[in-house]
Design a binder for these strands. Structure first.
Length: 584
DNA sequence: GGGGAGCCTG
DNA sequence: CAGGCTCCCC
């Protein structure tokens, strides 16, 4: 896979850490609305808008408008569309796995039903829909009514101003009306948002042209009409404000129902308070960013892409600066963070779009935006700035990984649809996920170790073999990647294996993380990075010295790596742990 | 011969 | 990821 795409000259890799700000720049272009169509026509519009005493109204109304629109949109969605694209894609992507799981469960019965957010889940959240919809409908009617009055007041002028008034009224909001709306700050619409919003879709994109009305309106209205207009405007604003607040209050104060549903339907409003913009592949609702201004109810830390950790963590540098002899706080923090971060978003479904997009479009940069900093390849290669002190073997340090003990009471999670598997149920996806995370610490677990770390599994021959087989598969993938990247480094002209260091913003790290840590809900321990670096170097040495001509040339490497297993944090022994981490 | 690990395949 | 197979070690 992806054999050619990574062959960048070594020099470009040294700048990989600079990619982040550069990409940030790309990611936040000047909004088209502000850039304007023509820089010369109507250039005073923005400043005149700011000088307008009604400008603050505009702000207020725009915000409320955004909220109303979002709610309306949410309720206009059919039940089938309540799931974000990403979730649906994820479900589709994980279908084979589910199928396999089902197949596996034929011999190992597991209650899989409740795992799927089925119609029952939607039912609860939908039952309040008609009520809110009714209110919004009334609100719309009210709006329309008031707007009609306003338009009547301004009718002669508008007609004169709009010779193209032959445009017919096609929908609830006619073009003519909408042009009028565009001139009035209280109008419910969607200027800012790209994408389609029901009957407002296409026209909204030409909103820039509508602003011209804004500055003209007062000039053509007689004093009386203007006064009437002002009164109507205030009344309308108040009515809208109250109605919106009322509706929002109802929606927001009904957490298990509406808010949850809205939050899951629109990823801009994830209840746990993630402020991170949705990745593009999940961003079917990217136009809903105004919802980020809604009150947050949780203090959950934001989930950040791995590549950003490189710059956010204090000991992201060379392992020498972060010796593993004292990583307990890091470990503890990371586990705490993970436990805190196990919000309602699905680690399974939410991560799948990323994963699938990566696998199917390995060279698609846009699909990998969450991993932005890792785009320069092969970025596993680092020049001198991060030498890894393998000369002083890390082996003894690796054995000193901490055993973090957390009170089980602190593992209480929000109730959810995923039932706790009982002891007799065999292996479930949570066990698999846990096993993958354990792979970060141990590549060659003994059956006794597995038994110790899966207390909720009743081991028998079959179960043990299956789990051993899991790790065998994990290793297989791991070594394949190592060989692949080692060969890539060789083809890139690298001669010193010490230059090969796996960092958190590297391509190899990303690949491994995606495989063992889908959803990125676990912070990969530093010890794994050291092992990965060492493995990579071993493969590099073997290949570069031609040992790969020997059919069993990998065995010595396996032997080395098999001695480098680390202690697994005690927290993994908790039978609750996988559920706490993966329930949702 | 049994069991574990790796390789290949679907 | 699982099944089947081979190889190797005890």
């Amino acid at each position: 896979m992806d054999p050619n795409s990574g062959l960048l000259p070594p020099l470009s890799r040294a700048c990989s850490h600079l990619a982040q700000p550069c990409m940030e720049g790309e990611r936040s272009p000047v909004p088209r609305e502000k850039a304007g169509g023509s820089p010369f026509a109507w250039s005073p519009v923005p400043s005149s808008s700011f000088a307008d005493p009604d400008w603050f109204w505009d702000e207020n109304i725009q915000a409320k408008r955004a909220r109303v629109e979002t709610i309306v949109q949410g309720m206009c969605l059919s039940p089938n569309t309540l799931l974000p694209d990403g979730a649906r894609a994820g479900e589709a992507a994980c279908c084979p796995e589910r199928a396999r799981e089902r197949k596996r469960k034929q011999s190992l019965p597991v209650q899989q039903g409740p795992l799927k957010p089925g119609p029952a889940g939607n039912h609860d959240s939908r039952k309040g829909g008609p009520r809110v919809r009714e209110q919004l409908h009334q609100l719309k009617q009210q709006l329309r009514h008031l707007q009609k009055h306003i338009l009547q007041a301004a009718e002669p002028r508008d007609a004169a101003q709009d010779p193209g008034g032959s445009e017919t009224d096609k929908g609830p909001l006619s073009v003519k009306q909408r042009k009028g709306y565009g001139s009035r700050p209280w109008v419910v619409g969607s200027d800012h948002y790209q994408g389609s919003h029901g009957d407002l879709s296409g026209e909204e994109k030409h909103r820039a042209s509508d602003v011209e009305y804004e500055s003209e309106e007062p000039r053509f209205l007689p004093c009386g009409a203007r006064a009437l207009l002002e009164i109507l405007r205030k009344e309308l604003t108040e009515a809208v404000s109250q109605a919106v607040d009322s509706v929002l209050q109802k929606v927001l104060l009904d957490p298990p129902g509406h808010l949850t549903q809205l939050g899951r339907s629109f990823q801009g409003l994830v209840p746990e308070g993630r402020s991170e913009p949705s990745p593009p592949e999940r961003g079917a609702c990217k136009d809903l960013f105004p919802l980020a201004t809604l009150p947050r109810r949780s203090l959950d830390p934001p989930r950040y892409p791995v590549s950003l950790r490189m710059f956010s963590r204090p000991c992201q540098g060379p392992p020498a600066n972060c010796p593993l002899t004292t990583p307990s706080q890091v470990q503890e923090n990371q586990i705490l963070r993970q436990l805190l971060g196990c919000g309602p978003s699905s680690h399974w479904s939410s991560s799948l779009p990323q994963d699938s997009s990566f696998q199917s479009h390995p060279s698609s940069e846009s699909a990998l935006r969450p991993w932005g900093a890792a785009r320069l390849r092969p970025s596993v290669l680092r020049q001198q700035q991060y030498p890894l002190p393998f000369a002083s073997p890390p082996l003894e340090r690796l054995a000193l990984l901490p055993s973090v003990k957390l009170e089980q009471g602190g593992l209480q999670a929000a109730p959810d649809v995923l039932p706790l598997p009982s002891v007799h149920e065999g292996l479930n996806p949570g066990h698999l996920k846990k096993a993958k995370l354990m792979f970060f610490f141990t590549r060659y677990p003994s059956s006794n170790l597995l038994k110790a770390y899966f207390p909720d599994v009743q081991f028998n021959r079959c179960i043990t073999s299956q789990m051993i087989k899991w790790f065998s598969n994990f290793r297989e993938f791991y070594y394949i990647q190592m060989e692949k990247f080692a060969r890539q480094a060789i083809s890139d002209g690298v001669t010193n294996p010490k230059m090969l260091v796996v960092l958190r913003n590297s391509e190899l790290y990303r690949t491994l993380n995606m495989h063992y840590n889908k959803g990125n809900d676990f912070e990969v321990p530093d010890c794994f990075l050291e092992i990965a670096s060492l493995t990579l170097q071993e493969f590099f040495r073997a290949v570069s010295t031609g040992k790969d001509s020997d059919p069993s040339w990998k065995k010595p490497i396996y032997k080395i790596i098999s001695k480098l297993d680390s202690d697994i944090p005690e927290i993994f022994k908790s039978s609750n742990y996988p559920q706490e981490l993966f329930r949702n």
